[in-house]
Amino acid sequence: MNQIVERIKKQYPDPTIELNYSNPFELLVALILSARCTDARTNKITEELFKIYPTAKELKDANFDELNGIISSCSMHNTKAKNLIELAKEICEKYDCEVPKSLEELTSLPGVGRKTANIVLSMGFGIPAVGVDTHVLRVANRLGISNSKKAETVENDIMEKVNQEDWIVFYTGLILLGRHICKAKKPDCKSCFLNDICPKIGVNG
């Protein structure tokens, strides 16, 4: 396990995700929009969106039809538009228009699940947390870090096996590994920097 962690840290030394943002609010909005939408598409949407609604203060007063039009190229845009306005209202009413810094507070907001909350905590505030998306879940299973298909169980398994100071770089590394090398249908094992130590659980061929 230590070897896996060290190789991940060497390959992906700077914890990052492929969404564009400059503060926790922008990250939160981008994550909500990115559900079932590519990061590239989300980044195009947020480039326009943040010019009009740069903070929760502006977004809470957004016109639904106008907001829905801006985000219409991503899936589930009607629900996302509704959630974003309600989310902004709650952030301003309960937290003085600042994104809260706890898992409980974040997951109480409309449209915010555990994965999104953990990514905001870690990437937005630098608070140790593990965000488990489909890539993290898949790669953690293939590496034998977890045998669960439940995101929260995988999250706990990673937190138990990886030192807290490495949580952020580790899970973001798994995301990038899953996106670009350890893909769902055709993992590129020959090009993978973990090839010689990966048990390849569930990988065909």
Rank of each mutant, 00 (worst) to 15 (best):
K51W: 14
E86Y: 10
G202N: 01
G124T: 02
A129K: 05
D39T: 03
V130I: 04
L194T: 13
Q164P: 09
L59G: 04
E86T: 07
L67H: 02
K149T: 12
V136N: 04
S72Q: 10
G113K: 13
A56V: 05
S73M: 14
G205T: 10
S102M: 10
E18C: 04
E26L: 14
I201Y: 08
F50A: 00
D39P: 05
V99R: 00
C189R: 06
T79L: 15
M1R: 12
R41V: 07
R142Q: 05
L31P: 00
L67T: 06
N147C: 12
T38I: 06
L31K: 04
S72D: 09
P15M: 04
I197L: 05
Q164T: 10
L121A: 01
V132R: 01
G124K: 02
L27Y: 01
I145W: 07
D166V: 09
C182K: 14
E165D: 10
N156W: 12
P187F: 03
C92N: 02
V99C: 03
F50K: 00
N20V: 15
K10T: 09
C92D: 04
N141A: 06
E160S: 13
V139K: 02
F193P: 08
N43H: 02
A184D: 02
D39W: 03
N118M: 15
I71E: 12
L137V: 09
K183H: 09
A81K: 11
S146V: 08
M1F: 14
R7E: 03
A30H: 01
I71V: 11
L106M: 05
A35P: 08
V139T: 03
T16F: 10
N163K: 14
A151H: 01
N156H: 11
N163H: 14
L19C: 05
K51P: 01
L28M: 11
E6V: 08
F170Y: 06
K80S: 07
K115P: 06
